[in-house]
Design a protein around this nucleic acid. Sequence first.
DNA 1: GATTGATTTGACCATTCGGTCAAACCGACG
DNA 2: CGTCGGTTTGACCGAATGGTCAAATCAATC
Lengths: 203, 203
Amino acid sequence: MTASSPTTRIQMRNRASILEAALDVFSAHGFRGATVDQIALAAGLSKPNLLYYFPSKEAIHNALLEQLLDLWLAPLRTLRDDGDPLQELLAYVRRKLEMSRDYPRESRLFANEIVQGAPRIHDALSGDLKQLVDEKCAVISGWIEEGRIARVHPYHLIFSIWSLTQHYADFDVQVRAVLGTEDPFEGASGFIETLYTRLLTPA
Amino acid sequence: MTASSPTTRIQMRNRASILEAALDVFSAHGFRGATVDQIALAAGLSKPNLLYYFPSKEAIHNALLEQLLDLWLAPLRTLRDDGDPLQELLAYVRRKLEMSRDYPRESRLFANEIVQGAPRIHDALSGDLKQLVDEKCAVISGWIEEGRIARVHPYHLIFSIWSLTQHYADFDVQVRAVLGTEDPFEGASGFIETLYTRLLTPA
DNA sequence: GATTGATTTGACCATTCGGTCAAACCGACG
DNA sequence: CGTCGGTTTGACCGAATGGTCAAATCAATC
């Protein structure tokens, strides 16, 4: 387990099991609400064995958040400044909604963290995240100045995409309680596509 | 403290202090993350004294959620089926955004609860909430059939209003980290109004 | 199959937390 | 002043929790 020692097959398997189990438990109960025993049980390990691979509960949480930030920002990173602006933005929205459908636990892990003030990732928010958003908003502003999409506040446009798409992961129980048996993502994708088409198509 | 005894001045003051403090602590740390000592300290009481007014931590939480559901659904309740459809919906959006600005703790209390599967209010969601939404969606569907607003999925329209407005309370730290010093609600109200005007104005 | 390092575990510890209780305190009212 | 119901508190309890450790077990290599 020292830095110089090779990573064995068992280490890889168990680390993966732990992170998988921790994602389950942290996303469902929050950091404080999750217990090490719960995570160990879900990972099929004893508590001391789990703590042989990660030094503390917080270390597991940090590892999850770190590995997650890349995944979470990937869709925005792929927004290209060439190509048709509306199509680029709609493609971004689609990718983001797919993330909510395919990675709801990751979405809720973030939601838990940010709702409670992002104590553990505040630096990443005002650092990497802000930088990426600034960059992409500059691109959007360029499109607006060229008259290729309607004039809207680029930052709030990004926020709206985040909130609309993540809502279906983070507030899943509420959405399903109201919709009944209807598949949320079916209707959501059509609705959201219509919304941004009407919002962004130049007058 | 029995049911028949009158509610004294001290009781009213302390109960209010406790609920106020509990709203602070629960919204910032979630149910599991909050401690009775924290709440008691914030309320200016000792822990046993606090437990003299509420039988348990969960009882405080329940009292908060119960009293909150009414406040939270009030804006939707006031959506009238007479009057101009677009103006009615825009007024609802405005009221909802004002709630996020003026009651961010309440919003986060709900967010915490729902993100973690709404274990304590699931019945209210598929009961009162669903009923109210069904009712209002019927009104919106009526407006659509009459051609007075554009054709959109009414349920997802409601969801979009919830997510867009509550985002500014629930994800406040993230929004502020990205925006810097700019006031979020300033830009948000203009953006969201534009969004729904363009979405809902008949073609 | 013996050795050696990696892995696993049961027992244990200190702290935190929700909650209890008997005793003390306080204030209104006769 | 005395009394009595309502209020407050210090001391305490049991359970849960994050984490430790020495000893046992396992697996790869010689």
